[in-house]
Design a binder for these strands. Structure first.
Length: 437
RNA sequence: GUGGAUGUAGCUCAGCUGGUUAGAGCACCGGAUUGUGGUUCCGGGGGUCGUGGGUUCAAAUCCCAUCAUCCACCCCA
């Protein structure tokens, strides 16, 4: 083998971490299905023109055959998100899908950006979207914050603050101010949380050439927050009028009202959220780990009216994406989430002596037959060592049996040390002892 | 992709201005304790000093390159 070295931005977890990751992915999947989203998987690659159609200068890994003509241009690239492949999938299979089409997709994506803590080049994205045929009621927009909140509530991770905003509101406000470079304004406003009021004011005037009072108004809007629909009054108080602004205001107010019963502090209107992707046309979401905002956004999405649409058919959609790898990579790295088990084994069958291997294997077989992950210790070491081996790997039970058949079978819970007689055809560990419940 | 910081045992680190066989704690292995663990005591193994070049009588220590990690820009999960 050639030199063995890690590749920057391509994380590989240890078994104990992967076990946690799988549990998280399972929880996410169950929650998605609970809300009626159907699973699909799209291929890892897309034609380059599909990938480039909606994002400007994306950091895309291109794919090329080793034997391709020397200077042949690459046709395909690895997808950098799964929203664009999904839009393509919907157009391709439109005839066979039922609308509104609710789907989830949990897949790896690849980006060529420079890695940092919580920023990877290969990572999992857990996406849910719903696409309507012609129309999609606003009620769908209101479903996602709740769904995300419920997922996070079930995971061993810090709480998430889910911020909601609306692109129409922002665009209408900017247009009402006479600003023409909407995209540029959004891009700078998006940094409000990071570079602060002064930084944003400066960039708005220096880079975009906005008048000081225009910039002041943008910042004033971006500072508005609220957990109910009261933000509407604050926006109106700024005295800007525009049709889009009114539309955005009422949409955002609707979403906030629909989330009012969620616990305080979880979901809020945050008028600084803009999001960089330019295909969003209405509601936008952005989530941060509470107390760990510096990791960046761990979940985001929004409504797009034109992503899957073409000249003839309107297929508006709304969706959100959860950054599983970013969350876990950060928590693992900081020791905020540590694994106590490196194997799914629940019972380690102790091996008394070499002659008893077949008998030990039979015990394991009888446990497995009833769905209990079991393994036989690799060698007939002293029982103290066999117990220690189980402890090191986080295996909760060690099974002992008397090869002469005199003392029968016993199972020891090595976390507490209790040891009781047990029948390999009947004994069952408690629900929590299974790693993947 | 641009700019910057860092890189010594499995882990956390020490190693002064370059000078003999590179150290500590924890972890690991063996024994005291010939089969029921996490205490104690005794002993032990383990390091191409990220990698590759260069300067020098001599490099973990100085220089260059490269890789990896982290930070800022950028982008966002």
């Amino acid at each position: 083998m050639a030199k063995i070295t890690p590749i920057s931005g391509f994380p590989e977890w240890l078994p104990e971490q992967r076990l946690i990751e799988q549990q998280v992915l399972d929880t996410v999947r169950r929650q998605f299905e609970l809300y009626g989203f159907a699973p699909i998987e799209t291929r890892a690659i897309e034609p380059l023109d599909v990938l480039l159609s909606k994002g400007d200068d994306k950091e895309i890994y291109v794919l090329q055959r080793l034997h391709a003509e020397d200077h042949a241009e690459a046709e395909f690239g690895l997808h950098f998100d799964i929203t664009i492949p999904f839009a393509r999938y919907v157009q391709q299979h439109r005839g066979q899908l039922h609308f509104p089409f609710k789907r989830y997709q949990i897949q790896k994506v690849w980006r060529g950006e420079r890695p940092q803590e919580g920023r990877y080049r290969e990572f999992y994205q857990a996406d849910i979207d719903v696409i309507g045929d012609g129309e999609l009621p606003l009620a769908y927009d209101a479903e996602f914050p709740r769904l995300i909140h419920e997922i996070v509530d079930k995971l061993p991770i810090p709480p998430l603050t889910i911020g909601v905003n609306n692109r129409k509101l922002l665009e209408g406000f900017y247009r009402g101010l006479g600003i023409e470079d909407i995209t540029g304004t959004l891009r700078i406003m998006d940094k409000l949380g990071k570079i602060g009021v002064e930084g944003v004011l400066q960039q708005l005037t220096d880079q975009l050439g906005l008048e000081p009072d225009q910039a002041q108004n943008c910042v004033a809007l971006g500072q508005i927050r609220g957990e109910d629909s009261s933000f509407t009054e604050e926006v109106r108080a700024l005295g800007i009028e525009h049709e889009l602004l009114s539309e955005g205001l009422s949409e955002l107010a609707f979403v906030m009202e629909a989330c009012e019963d969620l616990p305080p502090g979880r979901v809020g209107a945050d008028l600084s959220i803009a999001r960089g992707l330019d295909y969003y046309t209405g509601t936008v979401y952005e989530c941060y780990l509470e107390g760990h905002e510096q990791v960046g956004s761990v979940c985001g999405g929004g409504r797009y009216d034109n992503l899957a649409s073409d000249a003839k058919v309107k297929l508006p959609g709304v969706g959100i994406s959860l950054g599983v790898t970013r969350i876990l990579g950060y928590l693992f790295g900081r020791g905020l989430l540590s694994a106590d088990r490196s194997t799914p084994v629940v019972v380690l069958v102790a091996l008394p002596d070499e002659e008893s291997r077949l008998a030990a294997m039979d015990v394991a077989r009888r446990l497995r037959r009833r769905g209990i992950p079991a393994d036989v210790h690799h060698s007939p070491q002293k029982y103290g060592k066999q117990i220690r081996a189980a402890e090191r790997r986080g295996i909760p039970y060690v099974w002992f049996f008397d090869p002469k058949g005199e003392d029968g079978h016993q199972v020891r819970d090595i976390r507490g040390g209790q040891q009781v007689p047990a029948d390999p055809d009947a004994w069952t560990p408690s629900e929590e002892d299974f790693f993947a419940g």
